[in-house]
Every structure is written in C-alpha cells, then in structure tokens.
C-alpha cells in the first residue's frame, strides 16, 4: 500500500487559536507583517525548531496541534527581545506562555517533560513558602526527573562552600499566602 500525503489547507478566516489568543490575551496576530525582525532579534532562534515568526504564522494558519508540540515553546528563554523589536508590538512571549499553558493542560506531546516538572516544583515552593529556595528546588527537581546527579556535584560544592543557603528566608506571614492560593483555586476549580 502506498501512503499518500495530505496537502495542508490554511484557514481563510481568523483561526480558532488566533481568536482565542485575541480574546484571552488581547493580542491580534493579524497585525503581524511577517518581517522576521522578531527572529533576527531572538536570543535563541538558531536553536528553535520553529522561529518566532513561524510560530505566529502557525497561529494564523490555525495549526493548533503543531503549536502544542513545538520544541521552541520549551527552549524559549523569555528574554522579550522579540516584542521589543516587533514593529507591530505583538507580545510573542505572552503567546508562548499561553501556548505552554495550553500544552500543559492538553497534556499533549510535550518534548520537554522536565520543564513541566520544574514548574510544578517551583509553584509548590511559592505556595508553601512564599519565596523560592533554590537548593530544595534543585533537589526536588532531580528527584522528579530521576537523575539525582544532575546539578548535584555543582550544588554540593556550592553548599559546602557556604555559597548556597539551604533555606531561603521564608515569607514571614505565610498564613496569608496559603489561603490566598486556596481562595483563588476554589474560584478557578483547579489548583
């Protein structure tokens, strides 16, 4: 049997994901001039599977599944140079945040599971302690990705040399932080 190929058919009107981005974030990708100034300015475009300009194009074309499985979502450094350069002021980092969130919720084929883990750990740290403790985070992260030795020799050295504190000064009145998250989670229906 010969498997045939399908030729893509672009949306002729505003794609569903473009509309969602416009409604949820107030960013209209129709303003994109396709000039590539974002990509030329990007800190890490040379390492992306899809460059920022192409990602906006995927949004325009409505290639939702492709967007959620992008490698670039997770290697983006969030340096904001793209939006600084954009002649139309399109906030690409915000779109990347949004797509990461959608990818996380859709549990799609995320290429960098370790980042998701990292985020979960970081969040729990803020919720429980108010501020972030990087030592504990490092340890938790290593446990989560089941690689005890990533960062370990480095972290141990720092710790022994007194360069890393084990605990960061925890937020004093943590009792006002935890209920804040609880209340918001109740509103939202998810933690």
């Amino acid at each position: 049997m010969i498997e045939t190929y399908a030729i893509r058919r672009p949306e002729a009107q505003e794609s569903p994901i473009a509309r969602q981005i416009r409604e949820d974030l107030g960013i209209d990708v129709a303003r994109c001039l396709e000039c590539g100034k974002c990509t030329g300015g990007c800190s890490y475009a040379a390492g992306f599977d899809y460059t920022p300009r192409k990602i906006i194009q995927l949004v325009k074309l409505g290639e939702f599944d492709k967007l959620l499985s992008l490698d670039a979502l997770w290697t983006c450094l969030s340096c904001q140079l793209c939006v600084d350069r954009c002649p139309s002021g399109i906030n690409i980092p915000r779109i990347m945040d949004y797509l990461r969130a959608r990818a996380h919720r859709a549990n799609s084929n995320i290429t960098h599971k370790n980042i998701e883990k990292f985020y979960e750990i970081m969040l729990s740290d803020i919720k429980n302690r108010g501020r972030i403790s990087e030592t504990i985070m490092m340890i938790k992260y290593n446990l989560a990705i089941k690689n005890l030795f990533a960062n370990a020799s480095f972290g141990k050295k720092l710790f022994l040399k007194g360069k890393l504190k084990f605990f960061s000064p925890r937020t004093h009145n943590i009792k006002t932080i935890q209920p804040l998250f609880r209340r918001l989670s109740e509103k939202d229906g998810q933690a």
Partner: peptide, 12 residues
C-alpha cells in the same frame, strides 16, 4: 547585521 531570511526561515 542580524536578521532572519524569512523565505527560508533561518536567522542569519
């Protein structure tokens, strides 16, 4: 000069 050749989509 840093730019993207948008026709092949590569930073150059």
């Amino acid at each position: 000069v840093r730019f993207e050749d948008t026709l092949i989509g590569v930073p150059m």
